[in-house]
């Protein structure tokens, strides 16, 4: 009798088990999106759960950043990823994957500050590696529009990689020139010209120097024009006869000069490039 009761209980329990299993089988699961990032702990907490080991903390952050799938395009995930990578750079600035992933993903998704933080730390500590310096320079040019910074770090990158140095120096020169202060750019270009041993590069730099000097003349003329006429010039030809300008300066690179909408003389190719960006 008792045996029968136990068997019935067992059967009932099994029926309950199988029945709930059947119901659960097709039940919708809560949306599990493990690949998005939501949590970033403060640095002391990260240190604690890594047993006080900053290198482990850096690695954990980098692993988490690497786990973000390419299909995730949500701003919050990128923001958290930026913070995780900046923390990783604090813990171990030399981490190669950290700066590489940072340069490839962060600035293109709105996390320019975090990316530049990671890259600057890597560029300062990885003295044998041109890439963080180069990415830092590129981001400074492209995202931050700080041409002096871009030129300086392209130059640093050039010093770290002799084979790529000519191309990098060329870039540095262009970026310096595009800074809106011809004085600074001129000083730097002249210094680079004097330090360079490569004839081709020296010729190119000399041309860029002449071109910038032309821009300087035009700007002087424009400011005198503004003082005399109390309005901005509307054409470049208006500037002839002001501040000793007898003819429009020749551009050895054949790209020429332009007037901006506010009547400020600019290098022609830079106006075009800035529009297209």
């Amino acid at each position: 009798m008792r045996m029968l009761l136990v068997l019935v209980i067992m059967l009932l329990a099994w029926a309950g088990f199988a029945g709930t299993g059947l119901l659960l089988r097709d039940h919708a699961r809560p949306e599990a999106r493990a690949e998005v990032l939501r949590v970033r702990m403060p640095i002391p907490v990260q240190l604690t759960y890594s047993a006080g080991d900053p290198f482990l903390a850096a690695n954990l952050n980098v692993f988490r950043s690497l786990m973000v799938a390419a299909s995730v395009t949500e701003p919050e995930t990128y923001r958290i990823q930026g913070q995780l990578q900046a923390d990783a750079a604090f813990f171990n600035p030399r981490h190669e994957d950290n700066y590489y992933v940072g340069a490839a993903i962060l600035p293109w998704n709105g996390q320019v500050t975090a990316a530049q933080d990671v890259l600057l730390k890597a560029a300062q500590s990885r003295e044998w590696d041109m890439w963080p310096a180069f990415y830092y320079a590129f981001n400074a040019m492209y995202f931050e529009r700080d041409m002096n910074k871009a030129g300086h770090w392209a130059e640093v990158a050039a010093q770290r990689h002799p084979r790529n140095a000519p191309a990098l120096r060329d870039m540095a020169a262009k970026w310096y020139e595009r800074g809106d202060d011809p004085e600074t750019a001129l000083d730097i270009l002249v210094a680079m010209h004097d330090q360079s041993a490569d004839e081709n590069f020296r010729a190119l730099l000399a041309a860029r120097v002449v071109r910038l000097q032309g821009l300087q003349q035009l700007r002087k003329a424009a400011s005198e024009y503004r003082q005399q006429h109390a309005r901005a010039p509307s054409r470049l030809d208006d500037l002839i006869g002001h501040a000793g300008l007898e003819a429009l300066p020749e551009d050895p690179l054949q790209l020429g000069y332009l007037l901006s909408a506010e009547g400020q003389p600019l290098l022609a190719d830079h106006v075009k490039q800035q529009d297209s960006q």
Binding site: A51, D53, N59, F63, L66, E96, D97, V101
Partner: peptide, 24 residues
Amino acid sequence: LAGNFSGRQQLTVTLDVAFSGMRV
């Protein structure tokens, strides 16, 4: 296994994680 997470410096990450593990 941790080294496989790394794209550009597998050996370094392997060694790094191993040092952390040894310390613990």
